[in-house]
């Protein structure tokens, strides 16, 4: 069994949702994670709020710190969860169930977690 990170990207993180909408998303996200956990395939996860976010950029003037979310970059990362899956295909199936994908333009990146044995 491998571990995969599912990295959730939002097309536009600046969009403000209503509290009711946020509530619905929260429930859907919890149901989605609950479903993965119920198969004993959940490892860890966290939301990544935009409040107090910073971006550090290297430039010829040195390291520049700016406030997020992230100026010209269109996509922002909203959260990340790590799951167990037998194959990348299974991980993709889990990702497809995420409510993040209800928003057009949003995406989920599936990345295998490097093993801690030096082989990758």
């Amino acid at each position: 069994m491998e571990q995969y990170a599912l990295i959730m990207r939002h097309e536009d993180g600046k969009k403000v949702a209503s509290p009711e909408q946020i509530q619905i998303w929260m429930q859907q996200t919890m149901d989605w994670i609950g479903s993965i956990s119920a198969q004993n395939k959940f490892v860890s996860g966290t939301g990544l709020p935009f409040d107090n976010a910073r971006v550090i950029t290297a430039s010829d003037k040195g390291k520049i710190v700016t406030n997020g979310p992230f100026g010209d970059i269109k996509e922002t990362i909203g959260g990340i969860i790590v799951i167990k899956a037998a194959s990348v295909e299974e991980a993709v199936e889990f990702a497809k169930g995420s409510p993040v994908l209800q928003g057009e333009g949003n995406s989920i990146e599936v990345r295998k977690i490097a093993k801690d044995d030096g082989t990758h």
Binding site: D31, G34, A38
Partner: peptide
């Protein structure tokens, strides 16, 4: 709805087949 959300969170801390079935 409350029970379902509680099971969702419980399973993240502690997986057992019985908890998974209760969640369903």
């Amino acid at each position: 709805e409350n029970i379902l959300q509680l099971y969702n969170r419980l399973l993240q801390i502690e997986y057992t087949p019985i908890i998974a079935l209760n969640r369903i």
